[in-house]
Write a protein that binds this DNA or RNA. Sequence first.
DNA 1: ACTAGACATCGATGAACCTCGATGTATCGA
DNA 2: TCGATACATCGAGGTTCATCGATGTCTAGT
Lengths: 94, 94
Amino acid sequence: MSAAEAAALAARFKALADPNRLRILSIVSSSPEAETCVCDLPEPLGLGQPTVSHHLKILVEAGLLNREKRGVWAYYSLVPGALNSLADTLAPKP
Amino acid sequence: MSAAEAAALAARFKALADPNRLRILSIVSSSPEAETCVCDLPEPLGLGQPTVSHHLKILVEAGLLNREKRGVWAYYSLVPGALNSLADTLAPKP
DNA sequence: ACTAGACATCGATGAACCTCGATGTATCGA
DNA sequence: TCGATACATCGAGGTTCATCGATGTCTAGT
């Protein structure tokens, strides 16, 4: 594995290396429409709104979440296949 | 996902969130006997010996590597199934 | 016993990161 | 147009982390 490949992969794992970001992914993936409004996140996480926004930005930049703005609200959803491709990198399927 | 579960999972991903540690895992897993001597790591990584030792310790504490000392040398090998179980957590199989 | 080599640990330094309050931007309704 | 709400961005403070040089520990051979 080259240094560049390792750096790119490490950047994606770094996005997962935070408890609150994992909980965000868990909440989003278990939501009815597989999407979650930002306003529903601070309370279960026990975090401030700016902090939640910060984590969401990191997850989007890692290619794990999509952001869609509708009116005043912003909805986040899982990027299809993103977690699967990361899992394949960890344990390639035969 | 509870806060405790998220913290435990994040700790394991944190071990993967470093380019040099990913390269160490890559080198170990592609070695002939699936084990690598510490002395073979500093040169390809471009790191000092104490730094390599530091990363190896983190990977062992994360449950990803085994450490076996034979004589003066220390050999590290993958913990069987560790990466697979982590991959399953990311993308559960049907 | 002494030396040399392999590896681990310690202490320090500089960067990266999480969190927060304050502020900025945009949308909707009155 | 004005005010209120939802979200993003900014700047700061405190912690964590990667890396290194110096040092400690253990083993093998002389």
